[in-house]
Design a protein around this nucleic acid. Structure first.
Lengths: 218, 218
DNA sequence: TCAGGCATAGCCCCTACGTGCTATTCACAA
DNA sequence: TTGTGAATAGCACGTAGGGGCTATGCCTGA
Protein backbone atom coordinates (compact mmCIF):
# COMPACT_ATOMS: atom_id res chain seq x y z
CA UNK A 1 0.00 0.00 0.00
CA UNK A 2 3.04 2.21 0.21
CA UNK A 3 3.18 1.56 -3.49
CA UNK A 4 3.44 5.07 -4.79
CA UNK A 5 1.96 7.87 -2.77
CA UNK A 6 1.89 11.18 -4.57
CA UNK A 7 2.06 14.33 -2.50
CA UNK A 8 1.47 17.98 -3.30
CA UNK A 9 3.20 20.79 -1.47
CA UNK A 10 2.09 24.42 -1.44
CA UNK A 11 4.58 26.68 0.28
CA UNK A 12 5.97 30.02 -0.78
CA UNK A 13 9.24 29.98 1.15
CA UNK A 14 11.81 28.34 -1.14
CA UNK A 15 14.11 27.23 1.62
CA UNK A 16 11.45 25.66 3.68
CA UNK A 17 9.89 24.04 0.66
CA UNK A 18 13.21 22.40 -0.24
CA UNK A 19 13.65 21.00 3.21
CA UNK A 20 10.10 19.80 3.27
CA UNK A 21 10.22 18.15 -0.13
CA UNK A 22 13.49 16.46 0.66
CA UNK A 23 12.13 15.07 3.90
CA UNK A 24 9.03 13.77 2.20
CA UNK A 25 10.87 12.24 -0.75
CA UNK A 26 13.18 10.51 1.68
CA UNK A 27 10.23 8.55 3.00
CA UNK A 28 9.95 5.20 1.22
CA UNK A 29 7.02 5.08 -1.16
CA UNK A 30 6.36 8.80 -1.13
CA UNK A 31 7.03 11.22 -3.87
CA UNK A 32 6.30 14.92 -4.08
CA UNK A 33 4.53 15.20 -7.40
CA UNK A 34 3.60 18.89 -7.32
CA UNK A 35 5.21 21.93 -5.80
CA UNK A 36 3.51 25.31 -5.82
CA UNK A 37 4.47 28.65 -4.36
CA UNK A 38 1.08 30.34 -4.40
CA UNK A 39 -2.65 29.72 -4.32
CA UNK A 40 -3.39 30.30 -7.97
CA UNK A 41 -0.87 27.85 -9.34
CA UNK A 42 -2.00 25.40 -6.69
CA UNK A 43 -5.50 25.53 -8.08
CA UNK A 44 -4.19 25.13 -11.59
CA UNK A 45 -1.76 22.30 -11.07
CA UNK A 46 -2.99 20.20 -8.21
CA UNK A 47 -6.34 18.91 -9.51
CA UNK A 48 -4.72 17.59 -12.66
CA UNK A 49 -1.92 15.89 -10.78
CA UNK A 50 -4.41 14.01 -8.58
CA UNK A 51 -2.15 13.67 -5.56
CA UNK A 52 -3.02 11.50 -2.59
CA UNK A 53 -2.49 14.27 -0.09
CA UNK A 54 -1.89 18.02 -0.05
CA UNK A 55 0.34 19.93 2.32
CA UNK A 56 -0.75 23.54 2.38
CA UNK A 57 0.69 26.70 3.82
CA UNK A 58 -1.79 29.40 4.79
CA UNK A 59 0.32 32.50 4.43
CA UNK A 60 0.90 32.81 0.73
CA UNK A 61 1.47 35.78 -1.53
CA UNK A 62 -1.88 36.76 -2.98
CA UNK A 63 -4.92 34.70 -2.09
CA UNK A 64 -4.61 32.91 1.22
CA UNK A 65 -4.21 29.19 1.45
CA UNK A 66 -7.51 29.07 3.29
CA UNK A 67 -9.25 30.27 0.17
CA UNK A 68 -8.13 27.37 -1.93
CA UNK A 69 -9.21 24.66 0.47
CA UNK A 70 -12.87 24.66 -0.55
CA UNK A 71 -11.98 24.68 -4.22
CA UNK A 72 -9.46 21.89 -3.89
CA UNK A 73 -11.96 19.90 -1.84
CA UNK A 74 -14.57 20.43 -4.52
CA UNK A 75 -12.34 18.90 -7.15
CA UNK A 76 -10.63 16.28 -5.02
CA UNK A 77 -13.14 15.46 -2.31
CA UNK A 78 -11.34 12.43 -0.99
CA UNK A 79 -7.86 13.85 -0.85
CA UNK A 80 -6.82 14.91 2.64
CA UNK A 81 -5.44 18.41 3.02
CA UNK A 82 -3.03 19.16 5.83
CA UNK A 83 -2.49 22.75 6.74
CA UNK A 84 1.08 23.45 7.70
CA UNK A 85 1.61 26.93 8.97
CA UNK A 86 2.83 29.25 11.68
CA UNK A 87 -0.64 30.73 12.14
CA UNK A 88 -2.06 29.48 15.39
CA UNK A 89 -5.14 31.61 16.00
CA UNK A 90 -8.17 29.51 16.94
CA UNK A 91 -10.24 31.28 14.34
CA UNK A 92 -7.89 30.45 11.51
CA UNK A 93 -7.66 26.86 12.63
CA UNK A 94 -11.39 26.43 12.86
CA UNK A 95 -11.88 28.13 9.52
CA UNK A 96 -9.44 25.77 7.87
CA UNK A 97 -11.11 22.75 9.41
CA UNK A 98 -14.54 23.95 8.37
CA UNK A 99 -13.26 24.48 4.88
CA UNK A 100 -12.29 20.85 4.70
CA UNK A 101 -8.77 20.47 6.02
CA UNK A 102 -8.08 17.10 7.58
CA UNK A 103 -5.28 18.28 9.74
CA UNK A 104 -3.56 21.32 11.06
CA UNK A 105 0.09 21.20 11.94
CA UNK A 106 2.14 24.05 13.31
CA UNK A 107 5.50 24.74 11.73
CA UNK A 108 8.22 24.36 14.27
CA UNK A 109 7.43 20.83 15.26
CA UNK A 110 9.96 18.17 14.43
CA UNK A 111 10.14 16.72 10.94
CA UNK A 112 9.42 13.25 12.21
CA UNK A 113 6.24 14.52 13.84
CA UNK A 114 5.23 15.91 10.50
CA UNK A 115 5.87 12.63 8.74
CA UNK A 116 3.80 10.82 11.34
CA UNK A 117 1.03 13.30 10.75
CA UNK A 118 1.08 12.65 7.05
CA UNK A 119 0.91 8.93 7.71
CA UNK A 120 -2.05 9.40 10.03
CA UNK A 121 -3.84 11.50 7.47
CA UNK A 122 -3.23 8.97 4.72
CA UNK A 123 -4.70 6.35 7.03
CA UNK A 124 -7.89 8.35 7.25
CA UNK A 125 -7.34 9.97 10.62
CA UNK A 126 -7.31 13.64 11.36
CA UNK A 127 -4.39 15.45 12.81
CA UNK A 128 -4.09 17.87 15.62
CA UNK A 129 -1.01 18.34 17.66
CA UNK A 130 -1.67 19.04 21.34
CA UNK A 131 -1.00 22.72 20.72
CA UNK A 132 -3.53 22.90 17.92
CA UNK A 133 -6.02 20.80 19.82
CA UNK A 134 -5.65 23.24 22.68
CA UNK A 135 -6.70 26.09 20.36
CA UNK A 136 -9.66 24.15 19.09
CA UNK A 137 -10.76 23.34 22.60
CA UNK A 138 -10.33 26.99 23.56
CA UNK A 139 -12.48 27.91 20.64
CA UNK A 140 -15.20 25.52 21.75
CA UNK A 141 -15.19 26.86 25.25
CA UNK A 142 -15.15 30.47 24.27
CA UNK A 143 -18.00 29.72 21.89
CA UNK A 144 -19.90 28.20 24.73
CA UNK A 145 -19.25 30.93 27.23
CA UNK A 146 -19.91 33.52 24.58
CA UNK A 147 -23.43 32.23 24.41
CA UNK A 148 -24.46 32.01 28.02
CA UNK A 149 -23.53 35.34 29.57
CA UNK A 150 -25.98 37.01 27.24
CA UNK A 151 -27.73 38.20 30.34
CA UNK A 152 -28.41 41.84 29.84
CA UNK A 153 -31.07 41.91 32.50
CA UNK A 154 -33.91 40.63 30.36
CA UNK A 155 -36.81 39.32 32.40
CA UNK A 156 -38.31 35.89 31.87
CA UNK A 157 -41.29 37.34 30.06
CA UNK A 158 -39.07 39.38 27.81
CA UNK A 159 -37.10 36.29 26.84
CA UNK A 160 -40.35 34.53 26.01
CA UNK A 161 -41.44 37.33 23.73
CA UNK A 162 -38.04 37.52 22.11
CA UNK A 163 -37.81 33.81 21.52
CA UNK A 164 -41.14 33.75 19.77
CA UNK A 165 -40.15 36.73 17.66
CA UNK A 166 -36.89 35.02 16.76
CA UNK A 167 -38.94 32.16 15.37
CA UNK A 168 -40.71 34.50 13.05
CA UNK A 169 -43.90 35.20 15.00
CA UNK A 170 -45.19 38.70 14.76
CA UNK A 171 -46.66 40.90 17.45
CA UNK A 172 -50.20 39.69 16.97
CA UNK A 173 -49.24 36.04 17.02
CA UNK A 174 -47.11 36.51 20.10
CA UNK A 175 -49.95 38.21 21.93
CA UNK A 176 -52.22 35.29 21.05
CA UNK A 177 -49.66 32.72 22.08
CA UNK A 178 -49.08 34.35 25.44
CA UNK A 179 -52.68 35.40 25.99
CA UNK A 180 -51.88 39.08 26.41
CA UNK A 181 -52.67 42.26 24.53
CA UNK A 182 -50.70 43.36 21.49
CA UNK A 183 -49.89 46.57 23.29
CA UNK A 184 -48.27 44.62 26.05
CA UNK A 185 -46.17 42.75 23.54
CA UNK A 186 -45.07 46.05 22.07
CA UNK A 187 -44.22 47.25 25.52
CA UNK A 188 -42.03 44.22 26.12
CA UNK A 189 -40.25 44.89 22.87
CA UNK A 190 -39.81 48.48 23.86
CA UNK A 191 -38.11 47.43 27.07
CA UNK A 192 -36.05 44.74 25.38
CA UNK A 193 -34.74 47.19 22.82
CA UNK A 194 -33.88 49.68 25.49
CA UNK A 195 -31.99 47.13 27.54
CA UNK A 196 -30.08 45.90 24.53
CA UNK A 197 -29.51 49.38 23.20
CA UNK A 198 -30.96 48.61 19.77
CA UNK A 199 -33.85 49.78 17.72
CA UNK A 200 -35.29 46.80 15.92
CA UNK A 201 -35.82 43.10 16.16
CA UNK A 202 -33.13 42.32 13.64
CA UNK A 203 -30.66 44.46 15.56
CA UNK A 204 -31.57 42.67 18.75
CA UNK A 205 -31.03 39.26 17.18
CA UNK A 206 -27.74 40.38 15.72
CA UNK A 207 -26.69 41.62 19.12
CA UNK A 208 -27.62 38.37 20.82
CA UNK A 209 -25.68 36.47 18.21
CA UNK A 210 -22.94 38.97 19.02
CA UNK A 211 -22.18 40.46 15.70
CA UNK A 212 -21.40 37.06 14.29
CA UNK A 213 -23.99 37.89 11.70
CA UNK A 214 -26.98 35.68 11.42
CA UNK A 215 -25.83 34.00 8.31
CA UNK A 216 -22.11 34.19 7.96
CA UNK A 217 -20.99 31.46 5.67
CA UNK A 218 -23.81 32.26 3.31
CA UNK B 1 7.91 18.93 38.93
CA UNK B 2 6.91 15.31 38.97
CA UNK B 3 6.90 15.87 42.70
CA UNK B 4 3.51 14.59 43.57
CA UNK B 5 0.80 14.72 40.97
CA UNK B 6 -2.62 13.82 42.31
CA UNK B 7 -5.09 12.26 39.93
CA UNK B 8 -8.80 11.60 40.17
CA UNK B 9 -10.50 8.76 38.35
CA UNK B 10 -14.22 8.48 37.67
CA UNK B 11 -15.16 5.15 36.17
CA UNK B 12 -17.98 2.78 37.06
CA UNK B 13 -16.51 -0.46 35.79
CA UNK B 14 -14.56 -1.95 38.71
CA UNK B 15 -12.26 -4.05 36.56
CA UNK B 16 -11.32 -1.28 34.24
CA UNK B 17 -10.88 1.13 37.11
CA UNK B 18 -8.42 -1.22 38.78
CA UNK B 19 -6.36 -1.59 35.68
CA UNK B 20 -6.41 2.12 35.12
CA UNK B 21 -5.47 3.04 38.65
CA UNK B 22 -2.66 0.53 38.70
CA UNK B 23 -1.26 1.85 35.46
CA UNK B 24 -1.39 5.43 36.69
CA UNK B 25 0.10 4.65 40.08
CA UNK B 26 2.92 2.83 38.36
CA UNK B 27 3.97 6.09 36.76
CA UNK B 28 6.65 7.76 38.86
CA UNK B 29 5.38 10.83 40.67
CA UNK B 30 1.71 10.13 40.04
CA UNK B 31 -0.80 8.96 42.56
CA UNK B 32 -4.50 8.35 42.18
CA UNK B 33 -5.94 10.30 45.06
CA UNK B 34 -9.65 9.83 44.36
CA UNK B 35 -11.65 7.03 42.81
CA UNK B 36 -15.34 7.40 42.10
CA UNK B 37 -17.86 5.13 40.45
CA UNK B 38 -20.56 7.65 39.66
CA UNK B 39 -21.23 11.31 38.95
CA UNK B 40 -22.66 12.26 42.32
CA UNK B 41 -19.81 10.99 44.41
CA UNK B 42 -17.43 12.58 41.93
CA UNK B 43 -18.98 15.95 42.62
CA UNK B 44 -18.79 15.34 46.33
CA UNK B 45 -15.27 14.03 46.62
CA UNK B 46 -13.23 15.57 43.85
CA UNK B 47 -13.39 19.29 44.67
CA UNK B 48 -12.20 18.68 48.21
CA UNK B 49 -9.35 16.46 47.10
CA UNK B 50 -8.04 19.14 44.71
CA UNK B 51 -6.44 16.78 42.22
CA UNK B 52 -4.20 18.00 39.42
CA UNK B 53 -6.15 16.19 36.74
CA UNK B 54 -9.39 14.27 36.36
CA UNK B 55 -9.98 11.21 34.23
CA UNK B 56 -13.68 10.92 33.53
CA UNK B 57 -15.87 8.26 32.01
CA UNK B 58 -19.01 9.44 30.27
CA UNK B 59 -21.24 6.41 30.63
CA UNK B 60 -21.99 6.27 34.32
CA UNK B 61 -24.95 4.94 36.25
CA UNK B 62 -27.25 7.88 36.95
CA UNK B 63 -26.20 11.33 35.76
CA UNK B 64 -23.84 11.26 32.80
CA UNK B 65 -20.23 12.19 33.10
CA UNK B 66 -20.90 15.03 30.71
CA UNK B 67 -23.15 16.63 33.29
CA UNK B 68 -20.47 16.90 35.91
CA UNK B 69 -17.90 18.57 33.69
CA UNK B 70 -19.31 22.08 34.01
CA UNK B 71 -19.68 21.74 37.76
CA UNK B 72 -16.20 20.37 38.24
CA UNK B 73 -14.83 23.11 36.03
CA UNK B 74 -16.67 25.71 38.09
CA UNK B 75 -14.98 24.54 41.26
CA UNK B 76 -11.62 23.61 39.81
CA UNK B 77 -11.21 25.87 36.80
CA UNK B 78 -7.56 25.13 36.24
CA UNK B 79 -7.69 21.38 36.56
CA UNK B 80 -7.69 19.59 33.22
CA UNK B 81 -10.39 17.01 32.68
CA UNK B 82 -9.79 14.16 30.29
CA UNK B 83 -12.76 12.23 29.05
CA UNK B 84 -12.01 8.55 28.70
CA UNK B 85 -14.83 6.66 27.12
CA UNK B 86 -16.08 4.34 24.41
CA UNK B 87 -18.54 6.94 23.16
CA UNK B 88 -17.27 8.29 19.88
CA UNK B 89 -20.14 10.27 18.43
CA UNK B 90 -19.06 13.69 17.21
CA UNK B 91 -21.88 15.29 19.14
CA UNK B 92 -20.82 13.80 22.44
CA UNK B 93 -17.23 14.74 21.83
CA UNK B 94 -18.06 18.30 20.97
CA UNK B 95 -20.39 18.57 23.92
CA UNK B 96 -17.70 17.40 26.29
CA UNK B 97 -15.20 19.84 24.84
CA UNK B 98 -17.66 22.69 25.06
CA UNK B 99 -18.34 21.78 28.65
CA UNK B 100 -14.70 22.22 29.45
CA UNK B 101 -12.91 18.95 28.87
CA UNK B 102 -9.28 19.34 27.89
CA UNK B 103 -9.05 16.05 26.15
CA UNK B 104 -11.03 13.18 24.82
CA UNK B 105 -9.52 9.74 24.65
CA UNK B 106 -11.21 6.64 23.34
CA UNK B 107 -11.02 3.50 25.43
CA UNK B 108 -9.31 0.80 23.48
CA UNK B 109 -6.12 2.68 22.82
CA UNK B 110 -2.97 1.40 24.42
CA UNK B 111 -2.20 2.21 28.03
CA UNK B 112 0.99 3.97 27.08
CA UNK B 113 -0.95 6.24 24.75
CA UNK B 114 -3.17 7.11 27.65
CA UNK B 115 -0.23 7.91 29.86
CA UNK B 116 1.21 10.15 27.17
CA UNK B 117 -2.12 11.90 26.94
CA UNK B 118 -2.17 12.57 30.63
CA UNK B 119 1.33 13.98 30.40
CA UNK B 120 0.31 16.25 27.54
CA UNK B 121 -2.69 17.47 29.45
CA UNK B 122 -0.64 18.18 32.55
CA UNK B 123 1.71 20.17 30.35
CA UNK B 124 -1.18 22.39 29.31
CA UNK B 125 -1.90 20.85 25.94
CA UNK B 126 -5.15 19.40 24.77
CA UNK B 127 -5.59 15.85 23.67
CA UNK B 128 -7.20 14.35 20.69
CA UNK B 129 -6.22 11.08 19.19
CA UNK B 130 -6.42 10.96 15.40
CA UNK B 131 -9.70 9.08 15.70
CA UNK B 132 -11.22 11.72 17.92
CA UNK B 133 -9.78 14.53 15.86
CA UNK B 134 -11.39 12.93 12.85
CA UNK B 135 -14.79 13.16 14.56
CA UNK B 136 -14.23 16.76 15.48
CA UNK B 137 -13.23 17.61 11.96
CA UNK B 138 -16.26 15.75 10.65
CA UNK B 139 -18.39 17.77 12.98
CA UNK B 140 -16.93 21.00 11.69
CA UNK B 141 -17.50 20.04 8.11
CA UNK B 142 -21.00 18.77 8.63
CA UNK B 143 -21.74 21.97 10.50
CA UNK B 144 -20.46 23.88 7.54
CA UNK B 145 -22.25 21.87 4.89
CA UNK B 146 -25.43 21.96 6.92
CA UNK B 147 -25.37 25.64 6.23
CA UNK B 148 -24.40 25.79 2.60
CA UNK B 149 -26.97 23.70 0.76
CA UNK B 150 -29.44 26.40 1.63
CA UNK B 151 -29.36 27.25 -2.01
CA UNK B 152 -32.84 28.18 -2.99
CA UNK B 153 -31.77 29.86 -6.18
CA UNK B 154 -30.77 33.16 -4.67
CA UNK B 155 -28.56 35.23 -6.94
CA UNK B 156 -25.24 36.66 -5.87
CA UNK B 157 -26.73 40.11 -5.49
CA UNK B 158 -29.60 38.80 -3.45
CA UNK B 159 -27.19 37.11 -1.06
CA UNK B 160 -25.32 40.36 -0.69
CA UNK B 161 -28.46 42.24 0.20
CA UNK B 162 -29.55 39.52 2.58
CA UNK B 163 -26.21 39.34 4.32
CA UNK B 164 -26.22 43.05 4.99
CA UNK B 165 -29.78 42.88 6.26
CA UNK B 166 -28.83 40.01 8.53
CA UNK B 167 -26.26 42.27 10.11
CA UNK B 168 -28.92 44.76 11.01
CA UNK B 169 -28.62 47.20 8.11
CA UNK B 170 -31.84 48.62 6.87
CA UNK B 171 -32.98 49.27 3.34
CA UNK B 172 -31.48 52.74 3.14
CA UNK B 173 -28.12 51.67 4.49
CA UNK B 174 -27.99 48.72 2.15
CA UNK B 175 -28.70 50.90 -0.83
CA UNK B 176 -25.87 53.21 0.22
CA UNK B 177 -23.47 50.36 0.80
CA UNK B 178 -24.14 48.82 -2.58
CA UNK B 179 -24.50 52.10 -4.43
CA UNK B 180 -27.98 51.34 -5.74
CA UNK B 181 -31.43 52.83 -5.23
CA UNK B 182 -33.60 51.96 -2.27
CA UNK B 183 -36.24 50.76 -4.67
CA UNK B 184 -33.82 48.29 -6.10
CA UNK B 185 -33.06 47.00 -2.64
CA UNK B 186 -36.75 46.57 -2.03
CA UNK B 187 -37.02 44.72 -5.30
CA UNK B 188 -34.28 42.35 -4.27
CA UNK B 189 -36.08 41.68 -1.02
CA UNK B 190 -39.27 41.10 -2.93
CA UNK B 191 -37.59 38.44 -5.01
CA UNK B 192 -35.79 36.93 -2.05
CA UNK B 193 -39.02 36.60 -0.13
CA UNK B 194 -40.75 35.02 -3.06
CA UNK B 195 -37.98 32.49 -3.58
CA UNK B 196 -37.91 31.58 0.08
CA UNK B 197 -41.66 31.59 0.38
CA UNK B 198 -41.71 34.01 3.29
CA UNK B 199 -43.02 37.47 3.94
CA UNK B 200 -40.51 39.26 6.09
CA UNK B 201 -36.85 39.55 6.86
CA UNK B 202 -37.18 37.76 10.16
CA UNK B 203 -38.97 34.88 8.47
CA UNK B 204 -36.25 34.69 5.86
CA UNK B 205 -33.51 34.55 8.48
CA UNK B 206 -35.40 31.91 10.41
CA UNK B 207 -35.74 29.89 7.25
CA UNK B 208 -32.05 30.15 6.41
CA UNK B 209 -31.14 29.09 9.91
CA UNK B 210 -33.52 26.21 9.20
CA UNK B 211 -35.88 26.52 12.07
CA UNK B 212 -33.00 26.13 14.46
CA UNK B 213 -34.33 29.30 16.00
CA UNK B 214 -32.07 32.27 16.01
CA UNK B 215 -31.39 32.12 19.67
CA UNK B 216 -31.87 28.64 20.96
CA UNK B 217 -29.81 28.29 24.05
CA UNK B 218 -31.08 31.59 25.26
C1' DT C 1 -45.74 51.08 54.79
C1' DC C 2 -43.77 52.57 50.87
C1' DA C 3 -40.52 52.47 46.86
C1' DG C 4 -39.40 50.07 42.88
C1' DG C 5 -39.52 46.47 39.45
C1' DC C 6 -42.48 43.72 36.62
C1' DA C 7 -46.46 42.58 33.78
C1' DT C 8 -50.26 44.39 32.11
C1' DA C 9 -52.77 47.83 28.90
C1' DG C 10 -54.25 51.83 26.41
C1' DC C 11 -53.63 55.92 22.77
C1' DC C 12 -51.44 58.52 19.14
C1' DC C 13 -47.98 59.02 15.60
C1' DC C 14 -44.67 58.12 12.10
C1' DT C 15 -41.79 55.51 9.06
C1' DA C 16 -39.55 51.44 7.49
C1' DC C 17 -41.11 47.69 5.35
C1' DG C 18 -43.69 44.74 2.31
C1' DT C 19 -46.30 44.56 -2.09
C1' DG C 20 -48.60 45.45 -6.61
C1' DC C 21 -47.39 47.12 -11.05
C1' DT C 22 -44.43 48.85 -14.74
C1' DA C 23 -40.10 49.72 -17.24
C1' DT C 24 -35.22 49.78 -19.01
C1' DT C 25 -30.76 47.77 -19.81
C1' DC C 26 -27.59 44.01 -20.39
C1' DA C 27 -25.95 39.40 -21.11
C1' DC C 28 -26.48 34.89 -22.52
C1' DA C 29 -28.72 31.02 -24.65
C1' DA C 30 -31.98 29.10 -27.82
C1' DT D 1 -33.02 37.02 -33.64
C1' DT D 2 -35.71 36.50 -29.91
C1' DG D 3 -36.50 35.35 -25.35
C1' DT D 4 -35.41 34.75 -20.67
C1' DG D 5 -33.43 36.16 -16.33
C1' DA D 6 -30.80 39.41 -13.56
C1' DA D 7 -30.08 44.03 -12.02
C1' DT D 8 -31.56 48.34 -12.12
C1' DA D 9 -35.36 51.88 -10.98
C1' DG D 10 -39.68 54.29 -10.29
C1' DC D 11 -44.52 55.16 -7.94
C1' DA D 12 -48.24 54.29 -4.85
C1' DC D 13 -50.48 52.08 -1.02
C1' DG D 14 -51.39 49.87 3.40
C1' DT D 15 -49.69 48.09 7.66
C1' DA D 16 -46.69 46.10 11.09
C1' DG D 17 -43.41 47.70 13.94
C1' DG D 18 -41.02 51.13 16.78
C1' DG D 19 -41.48 55.12 20.09
C1' DG D 20 -43.53 58.79 23.31
C1' DC D 21 -46.45 58.96 27.18
C1' DT D 22 -49.48 57.41 30.87
C1' DA D 23 -51.62 54.14 34.07
C1' DT D 24 -53.00 50.16 37.03
C1' DG D 25 -52.44 45.94 39.83
C1' DC D 26 -49.09 42.89 42.03
C1' DC D 27 -45.20 41.44 44.55
C1' DT D 28 -41.00 41.94 47.13
C1' DG D 29 -37.62 43.91 49.97
C1' DA D 30 -36.16 47.85 52.69
Amino acid sequence: MNANIHLAVVEDNREFRRVLVNALNAHPGWRVAVECADALSALKEIPGARPDLVLLDLLLPGPSGADVIPQLKAKLPRVPIIVLTVVDSPDQIVRALEAGASGYVLKGGSTSDLLTSVEDALAGGAIMSPAVARRVVDWFQQRQSARKPVDLGLTEREWEVLRLAARGRQHGEISMALGIAVNTVKNHFRNIYEKLGVGSLTDALVKLNQGRGLLDGR
